[in-house]
Amino acid sequence: MIDFNLSVRQLFAFVFFIAGIYFLLSTAVGLIRFPNLYTRLHAGSKCLMAGGISVFMGCILLEGISFVSLKLIVIMVFLFITNPIAIHVIASFDNNYNLIPKTYTKEDLDK
């Protein structure tokens, strides 16, 4: 019974790991192929965090309920809080100092 339970848990954990590696690969490909800075920021924030969440979820499934999985949850929450701030700092710097010519028109601003 215990052996069966462990193997099912390992199977789900490996599914999570493979999903995480798909998201991380899409991050790398998106950073190379996207044409603009802001679209690269999209690839660098969302796909990266989705990959991170799925890798952490796989680790927690392998570990079970213990103090180590609580520590992993602490790291995950810390990444949740800090990564959008880092992306926002880069984006707001770029918006203020006009590094790349802005692409929006007057119609978009009035909405």
Binding site: F23, V29, G30, R33, T39, A43, K46, M49, A50, K111
Partner: peptide, 24 residues
């Protein structure tokens, strides 16, 4: 997070990325 990551990753693996971005 997962829904939006799937949408962005679908754009990354297209043959020609069809992006129409705007600022609001």
């Amino acid at each position: 997070v997962f829904i939006s990551a799937i949408r962005v990753s679908r754009h990354a693996f297209e043959m020609k990325p069809s992006l129409s971005s705007r600022t609001v």
